[in-house]
Design a protein around this nucleic acid. Structure first.
Lengths: 225, 225
DNA sequence: GAATTGCCGTACCGTACGTTACGGTACGGT
DNA sequence: ACCGTACCGTAACGTACGGTACGGCAATTC
């Protein structure tokens, strides 16, 4: 009697790389998820991606493996570590913060972000799923890592207060930028986000953050009072 | 041949009131949801609530009806409209804001809020479910309505800037208070929230909000620059 | 050119769930 | 005493899904 031939490494685990065909399948699955018509199922993925379910299981192990692969695939597509220049002044800082805020709001209000976060949140409740931590790591935490150099540069240059650590500063900035937008979108609130309103909100959040944490002569006077 | 005797109003729709027994069932269902062991099903609800599935269908129509009833039942339990006193000074305002922030963080970090929001978010994607709007209406929007009188009183008293409307002020305060806490909890991040850290964060958020929007002589001087 | 491999398409199995139906019980009204 | 109502417990049905198995086809390898 032959052994079931257990495949130890079913999913493609060479680094984070997926083959070309695998990427096609994962992208099709993501489209299906974003469109949100059907409740994402293995059969539906196989149907729309023109592949067989057996292949899905061979590549990704099981259903959760497919979902995790979708998230990891998407995460691997958004890599942009911004480098901090040398002569950093307040205008530079403000502009970089504002660009970051615009990026953040643009991503968060996108259909893809909403769909992926919904998926991960739905699976975060019922045990043993690592989807939540994957999304967290490549979403919120990646954003923190991306902005942290700028914040710390601002602190070391003396532009930003160094009384709180950079993590605290980032969380405050995050709150000022995101506000209730993400939770409202996740809950299905319409909330038409044009490019204009995103820019406006990003600018306001940046101004507020700088007002809270920048060390100017006027601010120093305030703190001294 | 007898007609199927279609029941036009299956769920208890006298206002928002549920009978005593119905409340027991809904609370049991909520416990089941919060515990998060099983994926909330009609059978599981009937089992733990010691009622029959037929009764569930008679009372609430269908599966979504039960879920909506759970949310509405829970929403009806947290009604606390704070009234704004007369002689409002900055200390009063600060303290009321801080209390509100503590309340908000306490609720949002609770198991029940996380479970209900997860449920609603999970159903917000796939069409025709009103769960999301119900949670939104009784969560985020109810909070806005609750704080708005205080904010507007602060504006009319001249303590808070009236350049932005009260909704904008609330959204900023919401962002400063909640930051990334809710999304991290929804995604399954542990994030041990003691009563102490909640108080600390609420106090910080309140200070920051006041720093941004309070109209004091010092702040007026800043804005003038 | 035969064998192997990788994949598609489809059929199939077991399970879990939503929904309905049925038998039995408790209780208030007449 | 009798009936209607409301409810519980359980069984049953249809469906949808996760997962597996098999046949066929094309490309690659030997």
């Amino acid at each position: 009697m032959a052994e079931p031939l257990k495949k130890d490494v079913p999913r493609a685990e060479r680094g984070e790389g997926f083959s070309k065909r695998q990427c096609e399948v994962l992208d099709a699955a993501l489209d299906l998820l974003v469109s949100g018509d059907d409740r994402l199922s293995m059969s539906a993925i196989a149907r729309t991606a023109n592949c067989s379910k057996e292949t899905l299981y061979n590549w990704f192990g099981d259903s959760d493996g497919v979902l995790a692969a979708i998230v990891r695939r998407q995460a691997s597509k958004v890599r942009m570590p911004a480098d901090v220049g040398e002569g950093l002044d307040l205008a530079d800082l403000r502009q970089r913060l504002e660009v970051f805020a615009i990026d953040l709001l643009t991503v968060l209000t996108g259909d893809m972000s909403v769909a992926l976060n919904r998926l991960a949140i739905g699976h975060a409740g019922s045990a043993k799923s690592t989807l939540g931590s994957i999304v967290l790591e490549n979403g919120r935490f990646a954003m923190g890592r991306r902005l942290k150099p700028l914040i710390e540069a601002g602190q070391q240059t003396g532009l930003l207060s160094a009384q709180d650590n950079s993590e605290t500063l980032f969380r405050t900035f995050f709150g000022l930028v995101v506000r209730d937008v993400q939770i409202r979108l996740l809950l299905g609130d319409k909330l038409p986000k044009g490019r204009a309103s995103i820019s406006a909100e990003a600018a306001q959040a940046t101004s507020q953050f700088i007002q809270l944490y920048s060390i100017s002569t006027t601010n120093a006077r305030i703190r001294a009072i």
